[in-house]
């Protein structure tokens, strides 16, 4: 959910881009972190922990905690909380620790 009318802050309109998450198409703002666009779309689970299969979501927002590692354009272990969103990005859940050989 986007914050529309804020008493103090104003948020730049920004360019809307399309990206896919698990095969479905979503929209977000160009340059915002992928995680922000996913959060806006109501997606809370970003991965499952490799050992105990616990759901993991957005947590630190500064690229510290590894809670948000996803596969982006085939590349695993991308910290989506600090990776800018671009037109046409393909975002997917990562299985386990992520397979670098799966990348193009």
């Amino acid at each position: 959910m986007r914050i529309k009318d804020h008493p103090i802050l104003s948020f730049p309109e920004g360019k809307t881009v399309e990206f896919s998450f698990e095969g479905k198409t979503f929209i977000g703002k160009e340059g915002e972190p992928i995680a922000a666009a996913l959060h806006d779309a109501g997606i809370r689970v970003l991965r499952h922990s490799p050992r105990h299969n616990r759901p993991r979501g957005f947590f630190c927002a500064i690229g510290n905690c590894s809670s948000c590692l996803m596969v982006v354009n085939g590349e695993p272990n991308v910290k989506v909380c600090v990776t800018p969103l671009r037109q046409g990005m393909k975002v997917e859940y990562q299985k386990g620790k992520g397979d670098i050989n799966a990348a193009d």
């Binding site: 959910m1 986007r2 804020h6 802050l9 915002e32 922000a36 959060h39 947590f59 630190c60």
Partner: peptide, 17 residues
């Protein structure tokens, strides 16, 4: 479950609730 810093970043920098 978020840290307060993350909540601030999300809502005040990126404008997402």
């Amino acid at each position: 479950v978020y840290g307060a810093g993350a909540v601030q970043t999300l809502m005040n920098v990126y404008g997402v609730a």
